[in-house]
Measured scan of single mutants.
Amino acid sequence: HYVEVNGKKIQATSAEEAEKIAKKFAKIYNATVLDLGNYYKVT
């Protein structure tokens, strides 16, 4: 599981952790979290 933010991949140990990381970055960048199955993308 990982999160992609601005083209950078951030490794996460679980889907739950990946979701938390994605939501945190989405809040910082006022962005949207896309759940793409095996990873989250912040756009």
Rank of each mutant, 00 (worst) to 15 (best):
E16D: 10
L34W: 03
A26H: 04
E17S: 07
A12G: 03
V5L: 09
S14W: 07
V33L: 07
Y39D: 07
L34Y: 06
N6R: 09
A31Y: 08
I21F: 04
E19H: 14
E19F: 15
S14F: 01
V3G: 00
K23W: 12
E4S: 05
A22M: 04
K27A: 12
T32V: 14
Q11V: 13
E17A: 11
L34T: 11
H1Y: 15
D35Q: 15
I10G: 01
T13G: 14
A31N: 03
I21D: 00
K41D: 06
L34C: 11
V5Y: 08
V3I: 07
V42L: 07
Y29I: 06
A22K: 01
V42W: 03
A22W: 07
K41A: 08
E17G: 04
I10V: 07
Y40F: 14
T13A: 14
V3S: 00
S14I: 03
V33D: 02
K27L: 12
V3A: 04
K8R: 14
F25H: 04
L36Q: 07
A22C: 07
A18H: 00
L36Y: 13
N38D: 13
Y40W: 14
G7M: 03
Y29M: 12
L36S: 04
Q11R: 14
A26D: 03
A12S: 04
K20R: 13
D35F: 14
L36T: 04
Y40I: 11
K27T: 10
H1P: 09
E16P: 05
Y39L: 06
E16W: 09
I28R: 09
G37F: 08
Y2Q: 01
A18N: 02
T43L: 13
I21E: 01
I21T: 03
F25D: 01
K20T: 10
T43V: 15
I28E: 11
T13P: 10
D35R: 11
V33T: 03
D35Y: 14
H1Q: 04
A26M: 06
E17D: 09
A12F: 10
K8F: 13
D35K: 14
T43C: 13
Q11I: 14
Y29G: 05
A18K: 01
A12D: 01
Y2G: 04
A31I: 06
K9Q: 08
T43I: 15
A18V: 02
V3Y: 01
A31T: 12
L36R: 04
A26C: 05
V5Q: 01
H1W: 15
D35G: 04
A26R: 03
T32P: 06
K20E: 12
I21P: 00
K20A: 13
K41G: 04
G37Y: 05
I21L: 12
N6Q: 08
K24C: 15
A31E: 06
V42R: 00
K27G: 07
A15P: 09
I10N: 00
E4A: 03
A26K: 06
A15Q: 14
Y39N: 07
H1L: 07
E16A: 13
Y2L: 03
E19N: 08
E16N: 07
E4F: 08
E16Q: 12
Y40A: 04
K9Y: 10
Q11F: 15
L36F: 14
K23H: 12
I21M: 11
N30S: 08
K24Q: 12
H1N: 07
N6D: 08
H1A: 08
Y39E: 03
L36W: 03
S14N: 11
N6G: 11
A22D: 01
A26P: 01
T43K: 06
K27S: 11
K23T: 08
K9E: 05
Y2P: 00
T32N: 09
T32H: 10
